[in-house]
């Protein structure tokens, strides 16, 4: 049986079928929540934003005419994440220092002068997660939207209000910081 499209589900919800919206919430629960969680970092805040994203979406459905529903959700999520980051003034810069005085740039495992020691201590997956966490916000967002949420670059660029080439460049920068870890792991 053919999968019901987002458009059909939205039409059903507009006619009063609440279960149809429930299907959409469940369909995008994992990629949307994972994206928010990795951008924000805490379960409670991720819960709040996830809820706000859906509340905003439900309120705005009357005027919704997009083709890519998840891309639209991701844009709403992006706005909430940016807004939250601004309020908290928590934009992470690689030039900022950690509590122990070590520049964040040097705390990214791929950039450490002693990668072998790092590899011995932690497995690659955990280090990769930490490295992603430490990426500049724009690069991290592109990486998460692409890898975790499986959004095309066209939608990512739209969410970030940049050109597709800028979105591609941000992904390239992110990958350039993550690749050395992979190389070290493979050579170990």
């Amino acid at each position: 049986m053919a999968e019901t499209t987002d458009k059909e589900l939205l039409t059903r919800y507009r006619r009063g079928d609440v279960d149809a919206l429930g299907v959409l919430v469940e369909k995008y629960r994992r990629p949307l929540f994972a994206f928010i969680l990795n951008m924000i970092g805490g379960q409670n805040e991720a819960d709040e934003i996830f809820q706000e994203v859906w509340f905003r979406a439900i309120r705005s459905l009357a005027g919704y005419e997009e083709r890519n529903f998840f891309g639209w959700l991701a844009r709403i999520a992006h706005n909430f994440v940016i807004d939250r980051a601004r309020r908290k003034r928590s934009d992470v810069s690689l030039d900022e220092e950690l509590a122990d005085g070590v520049p964040l740039r040097d705390a990214i495992p791929g950039a450490t002068p002693d990668p072998e020691r790092e590899i011995e201590k932690k497995d690659l997956a955990a280090r990769l997660a930490k490295a992603v966490e430490c990426l500049p916000a724009e690069q991290k967002e592109v990486f998460l939207m692409r890898i975790q949420a499986d959004l095309p670059f066209k939608e990512i660029a739209r969410a970030q209000k940049v050109s597709i080439n800028t979105a591609l460049a941000r992904m390239q920068y992110a990958l350039a910081k993550l690749r050395p870890m992979l190389r070290e792991y493979q050579s170990a």
Partner: peptide, 15 residues
Amino acid sequence: IAAWAGQALPVGSPS
């Protein structure tokens, strides 16, 4: 990297 990120990054679930 995509494969490892899928395993390493927290996915979580809304409460």
